[in-house]
Amino acid sequence: MNSKAYNLFLKDFRSELRTRYAINALAMFIIVAISVILFSIGNEKINENLTAGLFWVVIFFTAMSGLSRAFVSEEERGTTLTLQLIASPTTVFSGKLIFNVILVFAMNAIIAVLYGALFEDFIIKNFLLFIATFVLGNIGLAVSSTIIAAIIAKAGAKGTLYPVLSFPILLPLILTCVQLTLFSFDGTSFEKSRFELAIVISYDVIMITVSYLLFDFIWKE
C-alpha cells in the first residue's frame, strides 16, 4: 500500500513538474499577497501581533489558492474512475496528502523566508518553538485542506466554495498557530507554550483520523 501511495505521489509530482501549474500559481500568489500587504503598510511600523497574524493570513490564502488542485485536476481530466479501479481510497488519500504536505512545506518556507527578509518585526527569538509551530501547523493545514479539496472536487462549484468550507475548519488551528508564532517572537519557553502545542498536536491527530475515516465515503460517491 505504501509503495502504491508513493507511486501516486510520484505521478502527481511528475505531472506537476510538467505543467508547473500549482507551483507557478502559488509563487505568484505569495508575491502578490505580500506586496499588497507591504504597499498597504507603507512606512508604518507594525507590531509583532500584526506580523504574526499577517503571516498566517498569507499562508491561509495561499493554501486556499493552490491546494484544491490535488483532487480537482483528477475530476477535470476524468481520471477519477481509473484511480478508483487501481487503488484503495486510503492509498489515494495518502498519495494526495504526501503531495499536499510537500507543497505546503515548500510554499510556507518561502513565505517565512520572505517575511524574515521584508518585515522588521519578524524576529524569532525561540527558533525551535517556531520550527515546531511551523511543522505542526503545516501538517494540520495540509490534512484539512486535502479532505476539503476532496469534497470540493465532487461538488459542483470548484473554486469559490473552497475557502468558504475550509475557513471554519482551519480556524482553531490558525488562531493557535498565530498565538504560538507570537510566543516564538517573544522568546517564550516550551514549558509555557505547552498547552498551545498540545492543541495543535491534537488538532493534527484528530484531523488525520477523521480524514482517513471519511475519505472512503467521499471517494466512492
Binding site: I147, I151, K154, G156, P168, L171, P172, E221
Partner: peptide, 22 residues
C-alpha cells in the same frame, strides 16, 4: 451547489462530521 440527492447527502454529511470534530 450539488444537484444529485445522494451526492449532496453524502458530501454534506461528511462535511458536518468534519466540522463537528472542530
Amino acid at each position: 451547489s450539488i444537484e444529485s440527492e445522494e451526492k449532496r447527502a453524502t458530501l454534506s454529511s461528511v462535511y458536518s462530521i468534519i466540522a463537528f470534530v472542530t
